Amino acid sequence: MFLWLSSLIRSWPLLIYAITWIVVMMLTVAVASLSPEVAFVSAISSPERCKSKSNVRVPLEESPCFPAHLFTKSHIDVIVPPVFAALTVAASACLVRAVGL
Score class of each variant (00 low, 15 high):
Ile16His: 14
Tyr17Lys: 15
Tyr17Met: 12
Ala18Ile: 12
Ala18Trp: 13
Ala18His: 15
Ala18Pro: 03
Ala18Asp: 14
Ile19Gln: 14
Ile19Lys: 10
Thr20Ile: 04
Thr20Cys: 02
Trp21Ile: 05
Ile22Pro: 02
Ile22Ala: 15
Val23Leu: 06
Val23Cys: 07
Val23Trp: 05
Val23Asn: 02
Val24Thr: 03
Val24Gly: 00
Val24Cys: 03
Val24Gln: 02
Val24Arg: 02
Met25Gly: 01
Met25Ala: 10
Met25Trp: 03
Met25Asp: 01
Leu27His: 13
Leu27Ser: 15
Thr28His: 05
Val29Trp: 05
Val29Arg: 00
Val29Asp: 04
Val29Thr: 09
Val29Leu: 08
Ala30Gly: 08
Ala30Trp: 07
Ala30Val: 02
Val31Ile: 13
Val31Gly: 09
Val31Lys: 09
Ala32Ser: 10
Ser33Thr: 07
Ser33Asn: 06
Ser33Phe: 06
Leu34Glu: 11
Ser35Asp: 06
Ser35Glu: 15
Pro36Glu: 05
Glu37Arg: 11
Glu37Pro: 04
Val38Gly: 02
Val38Gln: 11
Val38Tyr: 09
Ala39Arg: 07
Phe40Tyr: 05
Phe40Ser: 06
Phe40Ile: 11
Val41Asp: 07
Val41Ser: 14
Ser42Tyr: 14
Ser42Ile: 11
Ser42Val: 13
Ile44Ala: 00
Ser45Lys: 11
Ser45Arg: 08
Ser46Ala: 13
Ser46Pro: 03
Pro47Lys: 10
Pro47Ala: 09
Glu48Met: 11
Glu48Gln: 14
Glu48Ile: 12
Arg49Trp: 03
Cys50Leu: 08
Lys51Leu: 04
Lys51Val: 02
Ser52Met: 12
Lys53Asn: 05
Lys53Leu: 13
Asn55Arg: 10
Asn55Trp: 11
Val56Arg: 08
Val58Tyr: 02
Val58Leu: 05
Val58Phe: 04
Pro59Gly: 00
Leu60Cys: 09
Glu61Pro: 08
Glu61Phe: 11
Glu61Asn: 14
Ser63Asp: 12
Cys65Lys: 02
Cys65His: 04
Pro67Asn: 07
Pro67Phe: 06
Ala68Asp: 13
Ala68Thr: 08
His69Ala: 14
Leu70Ile: 12
Leu70Asn: 12
Leu70Thr: 07
Phe71Cys: 01
Phe71Arg: 02
Phe71Thr: 06
Phe71Trp: 03
Thr72Ile: 12
Thr72Gly: 08
Lys73Ala: 14
Lys73Trp: 09
Lys73Ser: 13
Lys73Gly: 07
Ser74Gln: 07
Ser74Tyr: 09
Ile76Glu: 07
Ile76Asp: 02
Ile76His: 06
Asp77Leu: 00
Asp77Trp: 00
Asp77Met: 00
Val78Glu: 06
Val78Lys: 09
Val80Ala: 04
Val80Gly: 05
Val80Tyr: 08
Val80Glu: 10
Val80Met: 07
Pro81Thr: 02
Val83Leu: 02
